[in-house]
Design a protein around this nucleic acid. Structure first.
Lengths: 240, 240
DNA sequence: AGGGTTGTTTATGGATCCAATAAGTGCCAG
DNA sequence: CTGGCACTTATTGGATCCATAAACAACCCT
């Protein structure tokens, strides 16, 4: 799994910009339904509009933005049915990624997963939780050698991220307890290198979230009235 | 499944170019390992290099080309392990697409599948077979409403296409018979709208192909020495 | 007064030009 | 004769400029 966007800091400018925009979307700074203007991004990053356009094409192909001719790009707003299918895709693909990854995970990798698991249980901040949870799951796929499988799984995580955040935001603490329990079962299976059990627990983990999500339609509506003028966290500027 | 590239003829120029390049790759006109020069494509399509660049970014995000800074794009050459994983992904995702599609398939859609099935059995030309087989399988997912699932399945088909062609090229007629048989079972299940059986037959169909492919390493090597222009005789330099 | 129309504004799409980098080639020295 | 080095060339990456289409608003006509 070399497809982690955060790691690809170097490379062509269009990819760097794509990574920054992707991070902004995943962090919730841009949010579903919101528009992305080329000029604004170009100006903020201190570059021309051209690499921004390429970056938007990349994100479009990843499903993170949708493009209309002469109308520009915006973050798509998923409907419940589409999100449900995305979760079913995760339910089938991520266990495969885990099985592919398990034999190649080093002892240090597994140790790192334990560390993340403990930090998740300890932490309560939502933003931090999103980062740690992502690191935990994607970290468990770190041994997966397949480029395509890795990028597919990452894409699914990215596409579902905004709604996962909205879902976590409205639950009580017991939601954390359930997740902690499921993560523990998963970790045990990983410790034993038991891919059958690991697949089962992982699929169940995703499936339960999917079912619960189906019962919370408010996750889709919020559209938290983001202001254009005052982005809570400005895009990372082109730090020289 | 609105992601079929062949249907998206209109739209921005970058997408049109991406579609044309995609078709060329899928038809085998470009082939794994071969390079794609922006200027050549731009000249051939009578446009500037700029939309070609965007098109290449799109194809890169789809996994159909790989991009290196200042070195350009080329069609990636998959190794056997990667192809095997791609087939495992198909094995898990395409049954889901079929289950999502089945309830929404019209009687006319199913009838069209029967027509394709008969044409596949009758035809013997390889190039034609590749087109029909693709139309048959992707046609069975036509009822799938999910944008993301449709595009993912299409991507997997595209990525594996060159090797599927090489595989079909070296087999005898009995390979066609087996495929015909498996397609018939699949069609029966579709006729009965039996998603459980349909998933089973489809997964088996893909799985058998994967296993057989693993026993034919020559599929990867051939690289049929595509030359852009017969370099047997080195060009006289500085022909002015 | 309301709706349709037209002009203005704004943002995207495309083309040409220039800079930077990698590969290929020829030359020179050992 | 061979290996290394510098130069040339070809190709990609980026920026600026211009054309085009959509959104918006004011205005006129009914």
């Amino acid at each position: 799994m070399t497809a982690d966007p955060a790691l690809a800091a170097e490379g062509a400018a269009s990819e760097r910009i794509a990574n920054q925009l992707r991070d902004a979307i995943l962090a919730g700074d841009i949010g579903p339904g919101e528009r992305i203007r080329q000029e604004e991004v170009a100006e903020r990053l201190g570059t021309s509009r051209l690499p921004v356009r390429e970056a938007l094409r990349i994100l479009e192909a990843e499903g993170l933005t949708e493009h209309t001719a002469n109308k520009g790009a915006r973050v798509p707003r998923l409907d419940p049915a589409e999100l449900d299918v995305l979760y079913q895709m995760r339910e089938r693909l991520e266990p495969l990624a885990l099985t592919e990854s398990l034999p190649h995970l080093s002892a240090g990798d597994v140790r790192q997963l334990h560390v993340l698991h403990e930090r998740i249980a300890a932490d309560t901040d939502l933003r931090e939780f999103m980062v740690l949870d992502r690191a935990f799951h994607l970290g468990s796929y770190a041994g997966c050698a397949s480029e395509q499988l890795g990028s597919s799984v990452t894409r699914l995580w990215n596409a579902t991220q905004p709604y996962r955040r909205a879902f976590m935001a409205l639950g009580g603490p017991q939601r954390r307890w359930i997740i902690d329990h499921e993560h523990r079962l998963l970790l045990d299976a990983i410790d034993r290198r038991d891919s059958v059990d690991a697949e089962r627990y992982l699929a169940g983990h995703i499936r339960r979230t999917r079912i619960e999500l189906a019962g919370h339609p408010e996750v889709f509506h919020p559209a938290p009235a983001r202001r254009r003028s005052a982005p809570a966290v400005p895009l990372p500027t082109a730090a020289g």
